[in-house]
Computed example of a mutant assay.
Amino acid sequence: MNTFVNLSEIQFQVTDQLCLIHHEHMTLFGGHLICKSCAKEKVVNAQDQHLAEMQKSLLQQRISNAGLKKRYVDCGFKNFAVINRAQEHAVHRCQCFAEQLISGEISNLLLFGSSGTGKTHLSASIIRNILHRSLRSVRYFTSAEIAQKMMDSWSDHSSSEDEIIRQLTSFDLLVIDEYGLHDRHEKRLEMVHKVLYSRYDQMKSTLLISNFSLTQFEKDLGTRLWSRLHENGLMIVPCYWDDFRISE
Protein backbone atom coordinates (compact mmCIF):
# COMPACT_ATOMS: atom_id res chain seq x y z
CA MET A 1 0.00 0.00 0.00
CA ASN A 2 1.40 3.37 -1.07
CA THR A 3 1.42 5.71 1.97
CA PHE A 4 3.08 8.67 0.24
CA VAL A 5 0.94 11.74 -0.33
CA ASN A 6 1.16 13.60 -3.63
CA LEU A 7 1.01 17.23 -2.56
CA SER A 8 0.21 18.32 -6.11
CA GLU A 9 -3.16 16.60 -5.85
CA ILE A 10 -4.17 18.51 -2.70
CA GLN A 11 -6.25 21.60 -3.35
CA PHE A 12 -5.21 24.96 -1.88
CA GLN A 13 -7.92 27.56 -1.65
CA VAL A 14 -7.68 31.01 -0.08
CA THR A 15 -10.88 31.75 1.81
CA ASP A 16 -12.57 34.90 3.07
CA GLN A 17 -12.22 33.73 6.69
CA LEU A 18 -9.67 35.71 8.68
CA CYS A 19 -7.28 34.39 11.34
CA LEU A 20 -8.31 35.82 14.70
CA ILE A 21 -4.65 36.22 15.65
CA HIS A 22 -2.96 37.51 12.51
CA HIS A 23 -6.04 38.93 10.72
CA GLU A 24 -5.01 37.38 7.41
CA HIS A 25 -6.99 35.20 5.04
CA MET A 26 -6.93 31.53 5.94
CA THR A 27 -6.24 28.79 3.42
CA LEU A 28 -8.25 25.63 2.92
CA PHE A 29 -5.67 22.89 2.74
CA GLY A 30 -6.58 19.21 2.60
CA GLY A 31 -9.95 19.91 4.15
CA HIS A 32 -8.51 22.03 6.97
CA LEU A 33 -8.49 25.79 7.43
CA ILE A 34 -5.01 27.02 8.26
CA CYS A 35 -3.32 30.34 8.79
CA LYS A 36 0.11 30.43 7.17
CA SER A 37 1.53 32.64 9.94
CA CYS A 38 0.12 30.34 12.65
CA ALA A 39 1.62 27.33 10.86
CA LYS A 40 5.03 29.01 10.64
CA GLU A 41 4.91 29.91 14.33
CA LYS A 42 4.08 26.32 15.28
CA VAL A 43 7.07 25.06 13.29
CA VAL A 44 9.39 27.66 14.85
CA ASN A 45 8.07 26.93 18.36
CA ALA A 46 8.54 23.20 17.83
CA GLN A 47 12.10 23.79 16.63
CA ASP A 48 12.83 26.08 19.60
CA GLN A 49 11.41 23.52 22.03
CA HIS A 50 13.48 20.75 20.47
CA LEU A 51 16.61 22.92 20.63
CA ALA A 52 15.92 23.79 24.28
CA GLU A 53 15.49 20.10 25.13
CA MET A 54 18.72 19.24 23.32
CA GLN A 55 20.60 22.01 25.13
CA LYS A 56 19.20 20.89 28.48
CA SER A 57 20.20 17.30 27.78
CA LEU A 58 23.68 18.40 26.71
CA LEU A 59 24.08 20.53 29.86
CA GLN A 60 23.01 17.62 32.06
CA GLN A 61 25.53 15.38 30.31
CA ARG A 62 28.32 17.95 30.73
CA ILE A 63 27.45 18.33 34.42
CA SER A 64 27.56 14.56 34.78
CA ASN A 65 30.92 14.41 32.99
CA ALA A 66 32.24 17.13 35.32
CA GLY A 67 32.27 14.58 38.14
CA LEU A 68 29.85 16.26 40.53
CA LYS A 69 28.41 13.91 43.11
CA LYS A 70 24.64 13.32 43.01
CA ARG A 71 24.05 15.50 46.09
CA TYR A 72 25.48 18.56 44.33
CA VAL A 73 24.26 18.30 40.73
CA ASP A 74 21.37 20.72 41.36
CA CYS A 75 23.32 23.16 43.51
CA GLY A 76 23.40 26.74 42.28
CA PHE A 77 23.94 30.27 43.51
CA LYS A 78 20.17 30.80 43.73
CA ASN A 79 19.59 27.96 46.19
CA PHE A 80 22.57 28.75 48.41
CA ALA A 81 21.19 30.05 51.72
CA VAL A 82 22.42 33.59 52.38
CA ILE A 83 21.61 34.84 55.88
CA ASN A 84 24.64 36.97 56.72
CA ARG A 85 27.18 39.32 55.11
CA ALA A 86 29.96 36.73 55.07
CA GLN A 87 27.84 34.35 53.00
CA GLU A 88 26.76 37.17 50.70
CA HIS A 89 30.42 38.09 50.18
CA ALA A 90 31.36 34.45 49.47
CA VAL A 91 28.62 34.06 46.85
CA HIS A 92 29.61 37.33 45.18
CA ARG A 93 33.28 36.34 45.00
CA CYS A 94 32.43 32.93 43.56
CA GLN A 95 30.20 34.56 40.95
CA CYS A 96 33.06 36.90 40.02
CA PHE A 97 35.39 33.92 39.70
CA ALA A 98 32.95 32.15 37.37
CA GLU A 99 32.62 35.33 35.28
CA GLN A 100 36.39 35.58 34.92
CA LEU A 101 36.70 32.04 33.64
CA ILE A 102 33.76 32.43 31.25
CA SER A 103 35.42 35.54 29.79
CA GLY A 104 38.69 33.65 29.31
CA GLU A 105 40.68 35.07 32.22
CA ILE A 106 42.98 32.84 34.26
CA SER A 107 42.51 32.88 38.01
CA ASN A 108 42.65 30.60 41.03
CA LEU A 109 40.32 30.34 43.99
CA LEU A 110 40.65 29.11 47.58
CA LEU A 111 37.47 28.21 49.47
CA PHE A 112 38.38 27.45 53.07
CA GLY A 113 36.69 27.34 56.43
CA SER A 114 34.58 25.27 58.79
CA SER A 115 32.82 22.02 57.93
CA GLY A 116 29.27 22.20 56.63
CA THR A 117 29.41 25.80 55.43
CA GLY A 118 28.54 24.99 51.82
CA LYS A 119 31.97 25.20 50.21
CA THR A 120 31.24 22.27 47.90
CA HIS A 121 27.83 23.78 47.12
CA LEU A 122 29.56 26.99 46.04
CA SER A 123 32.03 25.08 43.88
CA ALA A 124 29.14 23.19 42.24
CA SER A 125 27.45 26.53 41.59
CA ILE A 126 30.60 27.75 39.84
CA ILE A 127 30.81 24.56 37.77
CA ARG A 128 27.16 24.73 36.69
CA ASN A 129 27.44 28.44 35.87
CA ILE A 130 30.49 27.92 33.68
CA LEU A 131 29.06 24.88 31.89
CA HIS A 132 25.71 26.59 31.30
CA ARG A 133 27.19 29.77 29.88
CA SER A 134 30.31 28.63 28.06
CA LEU A 135 32.02 25.70 26.36
CA ARG A 136 34.88 25.63 28.85
CA SER A 137 35.80 22.28 30.36
CA VAL A 138 35.51 21.71 34.11
CA ARG A 139 36.27 18.69 36.29
CA TYR A 140 35.67 18.02 39.98
CA PHE A 141 37.81 15.65 42.07
CA THR A 142 38.62 15.27 45.71
CA SER A 143 42.30 15.51 46.55
CA ALA A 144 42.29 11.85 47.60
CA GLU A 145 40.77 10.80 44.26
CA ILE A 146 43.52 12.58 42.34
CA ALA A 147 46.25 10.98 44.42
CA GLN A 148 44.68 7.53 44.08
CA LYS A 149 44.14 7.95 40.35
CA MET A 150 47.83 8.71 39.86
CA MET A 151 49.05 5.96 42.17
CA ASP A 152 46.83 3.42 40.40
CA SER A 153 48.66 4.23 37.17
CA TRP A 154 51.82 2.69 38.64
CA SER A 155 50.28 -0.79 38.37
CA ASP A 156 48.01 -0.09 35.39
CA HIS A 157 50.07 -0.26 32.20
CA SER A 158 47.25 1.25 30.13
CA SER A 159 48.13 4.70 31.53
CA SER A 160 51.08 6.42 33.12
CA GLU A 161 51.48 9.03 35.82
CA ASP A 162 52.46 11.60 33.20
CA GLU A 163 49.33 10.82 31.18
CA ILE A 164 47.15 11.30 34.25
CA ILE A 165 48.83 14.64 34.96
CA ARG A 166 48.29 15.74 31.34
CA GLN A 167 44.64 14.74 31.56
CA LEU A 168 44.12 16.65 34.81
CA THR A 169 45.92 19.64 33.33
CA SER A 170 43.77 19.71 30.20
CA PHE A 171 40.62 21.04 31.91
CA ASP A 172 40.04 24.79 31.85
CA LEU A 173 39.09 24.54 35.52
CA LEU A 174 40.03 21.79 37.94
CA VAL A 175 38.18 21.74 41.27
CA ILE A 176 40.08 19.93 44.05
CA ASP A 177 37.86 19.34 47.07
CA GLU A 178 38.81 18.11 50.55
CA TYR A 179 42.40 19.25 50.19
CA GLY A 180 44.29 18.16 53.31
CA LEU A 181 41.68 15.63 54.46
CA HIS A 182 42.79 12.26 53.08
CA ASP A 183 46.09 13.16 51.42
CA ARG A 184 48.35 13.40 54.46
CA HIS A 185 50.69 10.67 53.28
CA GLU A 186 53.73 12.43 51.83
CA LYS A 187 53.50 10.54 48.53
CA ARG A 188 49.81 11.34 48.08
CA LEU A 189 50.42 15.02 48.78
CA GLU A 190 53.25 15.01 46.26
CA MET A 191 50.88 13.64 43.60
CA VAL A 192 48.40 16.48 44.12
CA HIS A 193 51.15 19.08 44.09
CA LYS A 194 52.49 17.70 40.80
CA VAL A 195 49.10 18.41 39.25
CA LEU A 196 49.07 21.94 40.68
CA TYR A 197 52.55 22.65 39.30
CA SER A 198 51.55 21.34 35.88
CA ARG A 199 48.42 23.47 35.80
CA TYR A 200 50.49 26.51 36.74
CA ASP A 201 52.91 25.80 33.89
CA GLN A 202 50.03 25.48 31.39
CA MET A 203 48.29 28.59 32.80
CA LYS A 204 45.12 26.78 33.87
CA SER A 205 42.73 27.80 36.64
CA THR A 206 42.35 25.75 39.82
CA LEU A 207 39.82 25.86 42.66
CA LEU A 208 40.98 24.43 45.99
CA ILE A 209 38.55 23.62 48.82
CA SER A 210 39.67 22.81 52.35
CA ASN A 211 38.93 23.01 56.05
CA PHE A 212 42.47 24.35 56.49
CA SER A 213 43.05 27.84 57.77
CA LEU A 214 44.82 30.21 55.41
CA THR A 215 48.04 29.79 57.41
CA GLN A 216 47.78 26.00 57.14
CA PHE A 217 47.11 26.30 53.42
CA GLU A 218 50.23 28.35 52.84
CA LYS A 219 52.39 26.01 54.95
CA ASP A 220 51.02 22.84 53.34
CA LEU A 221 51.39 24.05 49.77
CA GLY A 222 54.88 25.35 50.39
CA THR A 223 56.42 28.68 49.50
CA ARG A 224 57.00 27.97 45.80
CA LEU A 225 53.53 26.58 45.06
CA TRP A 226 51.81 29.21 47.20
CA SER A 227 53.61 31.90 45.20
CA ARG A 228 52.63 30.31 41.88
CA LEU A 229 48.95 30.21 42.78
CA HIS A 230 49.09 33.98 43.31
CA GLU A 231 50.81 34.75 40.02
CA ASN A 232 47.74 34.24 37.82
CA GLY A 233 45.49 35.89 40.38
CA LEU A 234 44.24 34.22 43.54
CA MET A 235 40.82 34.82 45.09
CA ILE A 236 40.69 33.91 48.77
CA VAL A 237 37.21 33.26 50.18
CA PRO A 238 36.85 32.39 53.89
CA CYS A 239 33.75 30.41 54.88
CA TYR A 240 33.30 30.69 58.64
CA TRP A 241 29.69 30.47 59.78
CA ASP A 242 27.34 27.90 61.32
CA ASP A 243 27.27 24.37 59.97
CA PHE A 244 24.30 24.12 57.58
CA ARG A 245 23.94 20.42 58.31
CA ILE A 246 23.32 20.76 62.03
CA SER A 247 22.10 24.34 62.50
CA GLU A 248 18.45 24.73 63.47
Rank of each mutant, 00 (worst) to 15 (best):
Thr3Pro: 01
Thr3Ser: 14
Val5Ile: 15
Asn6Tyr: 04
Ser8Asp: 04
Ile10Phe: 06
Gln11His: 14
Gln13Met: 08
Val14Gly: 02
Thr15Tyr: 02
Asp16His: 12
Leu20His: 13
Ile21Val: 15
His22Met: 02
His25Trp: 04
Met26Arg: 15
Met26Cys: 13
Thr27Val: 14
Leu33Gly: 11
Leu33His: 13
Ser37Asn: 15
Lys40Glu: 15
Glu41Ile: 09
Lys42Asn: 11
Lys42Phe: 12
Val43Pro: 05
Val44His: 12
Asn45His: 12
Asp48Gln: 15
Glu53Leu: 09
Glu53Trp: 02
Met54Phe: 14
Gln55Val: 05
Leu58His: 11
Gln60Thr: 14
Gln61Trp: 09
Asn65Thr: 10
Lys69Ser: 05
Lys70Ile: 08
Cys75Leu: 12
Phe77Glu: 15
Lys78Asp: 02
Lys78Thr: 13
Asn79Met: 10
Phe80Arg: 10
Ile83Arg: 02
Arg85Phe: 10
Ala86Trp: 10
His89Thr: 11
His89Asn: 15
Ala90Asp: 13
Val91His: 05
Phe97Trp: 14
Gln100Asn: 08
Ser103Cys: 08
Gly104Thr: 11
Ile106Gly: 04
Ser107Ala: 11
Leu109Arg: 14
Leu110Val: 09
Leu111Cys: 06
Phe112Glu: 04
Ser115Trp: 14
Ser115Lys: 05
Gly118Phe: 07
Thr120Met: 03
His121Ile: 08
Arg128Met: 00
Arg136Leu: 14
Arg139Trp: 09
Ser143Tyr: 05
Ala144Val: 12
Glu145Gly: 03
Glu145Met: 03
Gln148Asn: 15
Ser153Thr: 00
Ser153Asp: 01
Trp154Asn: 01
His157Ile: 05
His157Leu: 08
Ser159Asn: 11
Ser160Asn: 08
Glu161Gly: 01
Glu161Ser: 07
Ile164Phe: 02
Ile165Ser: 01
Arg166Glu: 07
Arg166Pro: 02
Gln167Ser: 11
Asp177Leu: 01
Glu178Asn: 07
Glu178Ile: 02
Tyr179Glu: 02
Gly180Gln: 01
His182Glu: 07
His182Thr: 07
Arg184Ile: 15
Arg188Glu: 03
Leu189Arg: 15
Glu190Cys: 10
Val195Asp: 09
Val195Ser: 07
Leu196Ile: 04
Arg199Ala: 05
Asp201Tyr: 05
Lys204Trp: 01
Thr206Cys: 10
Thr206Glu: 05
Thr206Ile: 09
Leu208Pro: 00
Ser210Asp: 04
Leu221Tyr: 00
Leu221Ile: 03
Gly222Leu: 03
Thr223Met: 07
Thr223Asn: 10
Thr223Ser: 11
Arg224Asp: 08
Trp226Arg: 11
Ser227Thr: 15
Ser227Gln: 07
Asn232Tyr: 11
Leu234Tyr: 03
Met235Arg: 13
Met235Cys: 04
Val237Met: 04
Cys239His: 08
Asp242Ala: 11
Asp243Gln: 00
Phe244Arg: 01
Arg245Ala: 09
Arg245Lys: 09
Ser247Leu: 12
